[in-house]
């Protein structure tokens, strides 16, 4: 059988792109001590707001900007709830996801109810026909700019140090004069923007339109990838590539004769099961950030 290795690898990079953006956003959140289950809704809002802005303005760049704004707002809301008010993080996150998904579906019904799908301005692939290098701009940015930059920021910059300090030991950070609440706000807003950019990739790069349930659990995948990658940038990127390559493989294998008898749904479920299995094998006894899930109060 002539197996299309390069097609699978090219698809892997494309599929991994929204996951890398959103999962690295989640890394920033969780390194600061906050698990943001609003990620699914934030990606959804990024996808919808990006689509809406691009459809009305005719510019994909404008759409991207709108997605960033949506992500900033979602991140700030999460920060208000969990940092300022100290609400349980699971409940706040799920609440934000439910609210954003319902609000986007509501707006979608109001704005685009007239039957036919609206196609919007979208980003084109760079180097068309260039095989594996023919990717969307956000893919290049994710792997060549975002991941190295975030790795450096978390490891070596003052901001990264403060971020990790408030996530590991907020009492000590506070004593050392680091503004705990402000740093966590910054982390949630920055992470929210990245999640929304990841969501907007689905509408503004891949599809050029918006459909109900377009994110379909990718946010939850990202939360798993962060634990799988132990809150480190490159292992998380690796996890995203692992998920993406299984997804790309199932797309390829589903159309080969060998797997014609296997139900399509099982193939689609396969990457989820791989992530759970990977967690079960490599996720044992991971060390969570010190103040994970704990609101900070000055005593």
């Amino acid at each position: 059988m002539d197996f299309p290795v390069f097609a699978v690898l090219a698809a892997m990079l494309t599929i991994a792109t929204p996951l890398v953006w959103a999962a690295l956003g989640a890394v920033i959140n969780e390194r600061a001590g906050i698990m943001n289950l609003g990620i699914e809704g934030t990606m959804y809002a990024g996808a919808f707001c990006g689509f809406f802005a691009a459809a009305t303005s005719g510019s994909a760049w404008f759409g991207l900007g709108a997605a960033v704004v949506a992500g900033v707002v979602a991140g700030a809301l999460m920060a208000l709830l969990t940092v300022t008010l100290g609400v349980n993080q699971h409940v706040a996150g799920i609440g934000i996801t439910l609210l954003l998904v319902a609000a986007c579906d509501f707006a979608n019904r109001l704005l685009f109810s007239s039957g036919s799908q609206t196609i919007t301005a979208k980003f084109d692939r760079l180097f068309a026909g260039g095989g594996i290098f023919s990717q969307y701009p956000l893919t290049y940015v994710a792997f060549l700019v975002l991941a190295p930059a975030l790795w450096w920021v978390l490891r070596s910059s003052g901001f990264g140090l403060r971020l990790r300090a408030v996530g590991e030991n907020p009492e000590a950070a506070d004593a050392a004069g680091i503004p705990v609440a402000r740093t966590r706000y910054a982390a949630l807003i920055l992470g929210g923007a990245m999640m929304a950019i990841g969501g907007s990739f689905l509408t503004l790069s891949l599809l050029g339109t918006f459909t109900i349930d377009i994110v379909s659990g990718r946010g939850w995948i990202c939360i798993a990838l962060v634990i799988f990658g132990r809150w480190k940038v490159w292992p998380v990127v690796g996890g995203a590539l692992l998920f993406a390559v299984t997804d790309a493989l199932q797309l390829q294998l589903a159309i080969t004769s060998l797997f014609s008898g296997v139900p399509n749904e099982l193939m689609i479920a396969f990457p989820y099961l791989v992530v759970i299995a990977a967690l079960a094998i490599w996720g044992r006894g991971v060390r969570y950030p010190g103040s994970y899930l704990k609101p900070y109060r000055r005593a």
Partner: peptide, 20 residues
């Protein structure tokens, strides 16, 4: 048995159940 966060695994099994 492996102290793996239940939030993540329970979440991931939701789409799998729908696919089932």
């Amino acid at each position: 048995h492996a102290r793996i966060d239940e939030v993540v695994t329970t979440l991931l099994l939701n789409p799998v159940a729908l696919l089932l």
